[in-house]
Write a protein that binds this DNA or RNA. Structure first.
Length: 297
DNA sequence: TGGCAGGGTCATA
DNA sequence: TATGACCCTGCC
């Protein structure tokens, strides 16, 4: 990969296994918005724009030092996705999904934001999930000003922990309002601490997260995979159930068996396998297909 | 325009 | 271990 500074940010060329549409539309993140001139994301209090340019990708509103200290890790740049795909492709059943989503990367996201975002995701649909997160950020998050406008960071644990349930309901959280408030208090008090969790084994970390109200196996696995680097996590949702039933003949109703089967079969690569399977499944079946064009400036 | 389904979780039996 | 309820809204 070649990196150089430009007037407006930095330019990445010869980036392998990197497709912004697949990365941002594969369901791992809710705060990247596609506009006319690329994707804009609000990440850990920063606003980043990403677009295609000169055969590579330009990251706007950042500099080289920040790329190395923040974005390189966020986009999981040090991981060898070629090697992961080679190993997983030995399984004929998911080969097609890997080829289809070959530009997917698993983002290393903020633990706290990921936790609350996936509590909100339960029994919910993606447009509404995004709307709730936006409204929470607008109501409780820090304002971020860029030359192009103002944005709002995801609110801090202390703020959501002190928010009234009524106010959270007004943001559209529904019955998840009390889960959000209580979980925020558990994070704020240190009962659930990322610094401890990230060093735990997958199983220990899972059990700790399951103490949070609104967090079951699926949500916990998403949090562990997307924010804690526990790549053996295998979130089982409705889409994965359908895929696993079709591809491996597993019973769609038996979530525990699906998770166990995948973790035994794929080991530490289970999370990547899940991501390829999920993306192929939603792309084939959702009513409104994903727009795969990457905008140019 | 009404009715259903949605990236699950929790309480109850 | 198995069911049903659950806020609310996007979408048909």
């Amino acid at each position: 990969m070649e990196i150089k500074e430009t007037a407006s940010g930095i330019l990445l060329k010869d980036v392998e296994h990197f497709d912004p549409v697949q990365i941002f539309e594969c369901g791992q993140s809710f705060r990247w918005v596609k506009g006319r001139d690329g994707y804009t994301g609000i990440v850990s209090g920063r606003v980043l724009k990403l677009n295609s340019k000169d055969g590579g990708f330009e990251l706007q509103n950042t500099r080289m030092d920040e790329f190395h200290s923040v974005w390189s890790n966020y986009f999981d740049m040090d991981r060898d996705y070629g090697a992961i795909k080679t190993v997983l492709s030995e399984d004929e059943a998911i080969k097609e999904s890997i080829n289809f989503g070959s530009g997917i990367r698993i983002l290393n996201q903020d633990f706290w934001e990921t936790l609350i975002s996936f509590i909100i995701s339960a029994n919910n649909n993606i447009p509404r999930i995004k709307g709730i997160i936006e409204r929470l950020s607008l109501a409780y998050g820090e304002r971020i000003e860029t030359g192009e406008g103002e944005y709002y960071a995801f609110p801090e644990p202390v703020v959501l922990g002190r928010a009234s349930e009524e106010d959270l309901l007004r943001c559209g959280c529904g019955y998840r309002a009390r889960y959000i408030k209580k979980t925020a208090q558990m994070v704020e008090s240190g009962e659930v601490l990322f610094e401890r969790l990230k060093d735990m084994s997958y199983r220990e970390a899972l059990n700790l997260l399951l103490k949070c109200p609104g967090v079951g196996n699926k949500v916990a696995d998403c949090v562990l995979l997307y924010s804690a680097g526990k790549t053996e996590a295998f979130p089982v949702d409705v889409w994965i159930k359908r895929a696993m039933e079709r591809l491996y003949g597993l019973n769609e109703k038996n979530e525990a068996e699906i998770r166990r089967f995948a973790q035994e079969r794929f080991g530490k690569l289970a999370g990547f396998a899940q991501q390829y399977l999920f993306y192929k499944e939603i792309s084939n079946n959702q009513i409104r297909p994903i727009d795969r064009t990457v905008p140019n400036i």
